[in-house]
Simulated assay, not measured.
Amino acid sequence: VGVKFAKIGRKPWPLLWRMHNVQGDGITGGARLIAYLLDACAKRSIPIHYNTKAMELLTDETFRVSGVKAVNDDGWVEYHARDGVVVATGGFSANREMLCRYMGGPLSRLVLRGSPSVTGENVTLAGALGAKLVHMDQFHCGPIVEETHANPNFVIDAGQGIDVDVRGHRFMDEVYTYTQKSLATVERTPENLAYHVIDSHWPKAAGAAKKFLAMHTKVLVADTPEELARKMGIEPKVLLDLFKTYNDALKAGKLRELNPPCSLESPQPLDQGPFYAFPFQGGITATFGGPKINARAQIVSNEDRPIRGLYACGNAAGGLFYGNYIGGSQLGGALVFGRIAARELARQHKRG
């Protein structure tokens, strides 16, 4: 359909050289992807109805899904489907009540990284028909700056520096991946807010600061630890003591004996200005829970029987991922099972 992908490039561990990004051509890859898909729909005369929220699935006398009851700016509207309905709403990452219900209170404070329209219609629509809901507590999270939506994952995965809360205390092992760091931040800090503190031993520090400042994203830069502490709003002695404890342990080869330990493979001392503090919060990328599908993209009931005429793809479907996910596999799940669902619908149509 005309989507262009950029050359593969190295990503933060564990993604490494495993993922193709959509070529942005001046905008983000995600925004460009939507532009490509909208163009493809226009060329095929496929209508898109905006500000139209699905509220209820319609069924016929045989309990086959036959359409959707929705609400738009003018009120109620019904869409009738001869061959079935595909739920492609995403998950429930923007629904705070569902996050609290299925994942627990602290995780409901994760900052939203994605669309504010992903509010759990996959669960409410399919659940009303007895769909089996699986992996409801599973999700992916990553770092984010809420005010600007800047993503500092490559900074906090630099392999250098320390992660501190707003009081200037370390609270996790810096060897954590960006996903683990995001989860630890929301679970271990009341504010869901931390700083990645790093110095000029990291060759990308100045460039990273320039990039985020150009995006109107807060980065604290100082020539001395005392100055950095004041900009962070903490007592200079707290940061000076932390730097000394860290540097002394590094020199003695005892970083792993700190509490919490620091298990970085190639840590560097914190003694070379300028010094930088990059703020970040734990953010939710996507939820993995939802109505379970089979290999034909059909949503199944609690008895594992397909609900006739009802399909799901992408993050609207449950049962694809848990624990974590492979980079690129969310779009992969949407593409693969979206095509499977479309082929199933076409097959049903040909049968009449």
Rank of each mutant, 00 (worst) to 15 (best):
K4G: 08
K4F: 11
F5N: 06
K7V: 15
W17M: 15
Q23G: 13
R32F: 02
L33P: 00
L33M: 04
A35W: 00
Y36C: 07
S45Y: 06
P47V: 08
I48M: 05
N51Y: 08
K53P: 00
M55T: 01
L57R: 06
T62H: 11
G67I: 02
V68H: 00
D74N: 11
W76F: 08
W76L: 12
V77A: 07
Y79I: 08
A81I: 06
G84M: 11
V87C: 12
T89A: 03
G90N: 01
F92W: 05
F92P: 02
R96D: 01
R96K: 07
E97W: 07
L99A: 07
C100E: 15
C100M: 15
R101D: 09
R101I: 05
G105W: 11
P106V: 08
S108R: 07
R109N: 06
V111H: 01
R113N: 06
S117G: 05
V118R: 01
G120C: 04
E121S: 05
G127N: 09
G130W: 00
L133H: 01
V134I: 09
D137R: 08
F139T: 01
I144Y: 03
V145G: 01
E146R: 14
P152L: 12
P152T: 14
V155T: 11
A158V: 03
D165A: 06
V166M: 09
H169P: 00
M172W: 00
D173L: 07
L183H: 07
L183K: 10
V186K: 01
T189Q: 04
I198E: 03
H201Y: 08
H201F: 07
W202F: 12
P203N: 07
K204C: 04
A205L: 05
A208T: 06
A209Y: 03
A214V: 06
A214L: 11
H216W: 13
E226L: 14
A229E: 14
M232L: 10
D241I: 11
F243V: 14
K244F: 06
K244N: 05
T245Y: 00
L250W: 04
K254L: 12
E257S: 14
S263V: 08
S266A: 13
S266W: 10
S266T: 14
Q268R: 09
F278W: 08
Q281D: 03
G282W: 08
A286P: 02
A286E: 09
G290M: 04
P291M: 15
K292R: 15
N294R: 12
V300E: 00
S301V: 13
E303D: 13
D304G: 02
G309N: 13
G318N: 06
G319V: 00
G323V: 15
I326A: 15
G328V: 01
G328P: 05
S329D: 08
Q330E: 05
Q330L: 12
Q330H: 01
G332R: 06
G333R: 05
L335M: 11
A341K: 07
A342H: 03
A342K: 02
A342N: 03
R343D: 10
R347A: 12
G352S: 09
